[in-house]
C-alpha cells in the first residue's frame, strides 16, 4: 500500500476496501464490525443514550493526545454525561489527499487504546477522501450509544444550597492546543487533559439522584457550562475564584495570550451540582481517583439572583460571570 492517502482510497473501490481492511478494521476487530455491513445490528436495551460529535482539531497531534483519542473521549464523555454507560461507537474519517498512512495508523491506534479503556466497541464506520486543499489532513466523526444508568439528571433538580464540584484543574485543553498551534511555550508542561471520564462517572452514578446535573465543560469552558446549568432557573451559582483549580502554567499562558481560563476548553473534567449532604463524601471518592486528585468544591447554589453565575473574586469583589461571547479559539476539538 502507498505511504500517503490518494484520492483512490476514497473511491469506494478496491483501494477503499484495502484501507478499511488493512488499517482500520484490524484495530477494532469484533463480530459486529467484521461483518462489514452498512450498519450495525446490536442487542437492544430498554433505554439508550445516543450522541454524535465531529472532530476537526488543528493540529491533529497535540500535547497530551491526538484527534483519535479526542474522537473517542469526546463522544464517550457525552454519553457518560447523559447518565449512560457507553457501549458502541461509529467511526468515520474524512481524509485529505496526501495524508500520511503512517499518521493515520498512529491515530487509529489511539482510537483503539481509548476504546479499550472505555470498554466500547467500534461497530460501524465510513471513510471518505477529499482532494488536496479541501480538508485539513483528517477529520473524524464518532457517534455512540450507551445504556442508561441514572435517569434523573436535569436542571429542574437544582435546589438552593446545592454544591458545585469540579473534578480537576480547568482550561488545560484549550491552552495546550493554542500553544501547539502557534509554537508558543514549546518547552512548557501544558498538556491537554483529554481523557475518558468513565471512572469518574462510575463513582458519580453511585450517588444516584443526589447528583442533580453534570456536564463536561468543553467548548466555552467552565463559565459557559455553569451558566447553562442555571439559565432559566430561579437560582444562581455563587462561584469562588480562589477555589477553582487552575494550573500555574495554564494561568501564566492565559495571561500572555489574553485568554480567560474559565472559558478555555476542557476534555477530561466534569462539573457537577450535588446535594449538600453528600458533597464531602462524593468529593473524597473523586479525589481517590488519580484523575480526580485536584477536585474541589468551587461554589454553591443560592436563590439571591435568578439564572446567573456570580463570581466572588480573590480581592473580595463580585461580578457576573457570563457565557462565552464570540469564539475564544476555533477548532479545538
Amino acid at each position: 500500500m502507498e505511504d500517503i492517502i490518494t484520492l483512490d482510497f476514497g473511491s469506494g473501490g478496491k483501494k477503499t476496501s484495502q484501507l478499511i481492511e488493512e488499517v482500520i478494521v484490524p484495530a477494532f476487530s469484533n463480530d459486529t464490525l467484521n461483518s462489514l455491513m452498512d450498519g450495525a445490528i446490536l442487542n437492544g436495551y430498554k433505554k439508550i443514550a445516543f450522541s454524535t460529535d465531529s472532530f476537526v482539531i488543528s493540529p491533529y497531534f497535540f500535547p497530551g493526545g491526538d484527534i483519535g483519542k479526542l474522537a473517542v473521549c469526546g463522544t464517550v464523555n457525552d454519553i457518560l454525561m447523559c447518565g449512560a454507560i457507553p457501549k458502541y461507537l461509529s467511526l468515520s474519517f474524512i481524509l485529505e489527499e496526501g495524508f500520511k498512512i503512517e499518521d493515520l495508523k498512529v491515530i487509529v491506534n489511539s482510537i483503539k487504546e481509548m476504546a479499550d479503556v472505555c470498554n466500547v466497541k467500534i461497530v460501524t464506520g465510513d471513510t471518505k477522501v477529499v482532494e488536496k486543499g479541501k480538508g485539513d489532513g483528517i477529520y473524524i466523526n464518532t457517534s455512540g450509544i450507551g445504556f442508561i444508568e441514572v435517569e434523573s439528571y436535569g436542571k429542574d433538580k437544582i435546589e438552593d444550597g446545592d454544591v458545585v464540584i469540579v473534578t480537576g484543574s480547568v482550561g488545560d485543553h484549550g491552552i495546550a492546543v493554542m500553544s501547539a498551534r502557534n509554537n508558543f511555550f514549546v518547552d512548557s508542561s501544558i498538556k491537554s487533559d483529554c481523557m475518558p471520564l468513565i471512572n469518574l462517572a462510575n463513582i458519580i452514578f453511585k450517588y444516584g439522584d443526589k447528583v442533580k446535573i453534570m456536564r463536561d465543560p468543553t467548548r466555552g469552558g467552565l463559565a459557559t457550562t455553569l451558566n447553562e446549568f442555571v439559565e432559566g432557573t430561579s437560582f444562581s451559582i455563587e462561584l469562588f475564584e480562589d477555589k477553582i483549580p487552575i494550573r500555574k502554567e495554564v494561568l501564566a499562558a492565559c495571561e500572555v495570550l489574553g485568554i480567560d481560563p474559565l472559558y478555555s476548553a476542557n476534555e477530561g473534567k466534569i462539573v457537577l451540582i450535588v446535594a449538600k449532604d453528600i458533597a464531602q463524601a462524593l468529593l473524597s471518592d473523586i479525589k481517590n481517583l488519580p484523575e480526580g486528585k485536584e477536585a474541589a468544591i468551587i461554589g454553591n447554589v443560592t436563590s439571591s439572583y435568578k439564572g446567573v453565575v456570580v463570581l466572588k473574586t480573590g480581592i473580595g469583589g463580585s461580578r457576573i460571570l457570563n457565557k462565552l461571547t464570540g469564539a475564544q479559539l476555533p477548532r479545538i476539538c
Binding site: D260, L311, T313, G314, I315, G317, S318, R319
Partner: peptide
C-alpha cells in the same frame, strides 16, 4: 478592574 470586580467594593 472589571474582571476582578473592583467597582463592586
Amino acid at each position: 478592574i472589571a474582571k476582578s470586580g473592583i467597582r463592586s467594593i
